[in-house]
């Protein structure tokens, strides 16, 4: 049935157009490039921005990994893998080291990504200024003029009200001292992996029709006041109950049967690999 479709589902013209937007995004790190989001046999809001990026970039030599909330086995991840495999025939893997393209929602893998690898992030809300300004025309102008005071104000208000910055996911960062970007929707634990990385990060928002990028070795700084350092989630004193890791992002799991609270790696393939060693 898939024979009716072009390789990687999208027609070559569409893929070329998306790749042109990707090139622009790479040339202007952190800048949101509009693109003509295509219809896919998947509902918007289910990662269509990320899938379009993956489909436009993928070729027969590639190996694909897909993760959702850190897991390769979630329904969404499995469906995306099935779909891409069906229309390209590329091999899939759960090992970060083996993949050339990794499509993800919520997490950056624990295994450091290397040069030549691409991490495609599915983004629901690309605009970091949306919380302070509802109108697209206005936020565009704010970016153009580097008018970022309102987002800093948001951080300050959080400090005044709660004594600390309470944003935990979608924590805004400044890219190459120019554009404030939403690394949506990774936890701020992963923000530091964006800075001076070896791999290429691509962000795709299907519903909002935006693509943005962080090319290798880009300066990415999580917003913080001079006197209040940026702090990522701390799992001090906790470890993964399965593999014993103490330096990974841990999910808290509550067992309602026993009333027990325990922790395990959110990156399931990493956890498995540690255990098999």
């Amino acid at each position: 049935m898939m024979d009716k479709y072009n390789y990687a589902f999208l027609d070559e013209g569409s893929k070329r157009e998306i790749r042109r937007s990707v090139l622009k995004a790479v040339a202007i790190p952190g800048y949101q490039v509009p693109f003509g989001s295509r219809e896919l046999p998947i509902g918007r809001g289910w990662g269509t921005g990320g899938i379009q990026l993956t489909l436009s970039l993928i070729g027969p030599e590639d190996t694909l990994k897909v993760i959702d909330q850190g897991s390769d086995e979630s329904v969404n991840a499995v469906n995306i893998k099935k779909f891409v495999k069906m229309c390209t025939g590329v091999p899939c893997t759960t090992r970060t080291q083996e993949a050339t393209i990794i499509q993800t929602r919520h997490r950056i893998p624990e295994v450091p990504m290397t040069n030549g690898q691409i991490l495609v992030l599915q983004v629901p809300l690309p605009e970091p200024l949306r919380i302070v300004e509802p109108q697209e025309a206005v936020t565009k102008k704010m970016h153009a003029e580097s008018d970022y005071a309102p987002i800093w104000l948001q951080l300050y208000e959080s400090l005044i009200k709660y004594g600390k910055v309470t944003i935990s996911a979608e924590y805004p960062c400044l890219v190459e001292d120019r554009y404030i970007m939403n690394p949506s929707p990774i936890p701020k634990f992963d923000n530091s992996k964006l800075h001076d990385a070896e791999c290429l990060y691509l962000f795709g928002a299907g519903r909002e029709k935006k693509i943005y990028a962080i090319p290798p070795h880009t300066k990415v700084v999580s917003l913080a006041f001079d006197d209040v350092p940026f702090e990522k989630e701390s799992f001090r004193g906790k470890k993964c109950r399965l593999c014993g890791s103490t330096d990974t992002y841990l999910d808290e799991i509550f067992d309602s049967a026993t009333g027990e609270r325990y922790y395990q790696c959110s990156d399931t393939s990493y956890c498995k690999e540690v255990r098999s060693k």
Partner: peptide
């Protein structure tokens, strides 16, 4: 900004003038 704290209303101006020191704003 009616929904932001009084302190933030003042801080907004200080931020806009370029300061990134929260303690000084307070």
């Amino acid at each position: 900004r009616m929904d932001y704290s009084a302190a933030s209303n003042i801080a907004e101006k200080i931020i806009a003038a370029g300061s990134r020191n929260a303690g000084q704003m307070t």
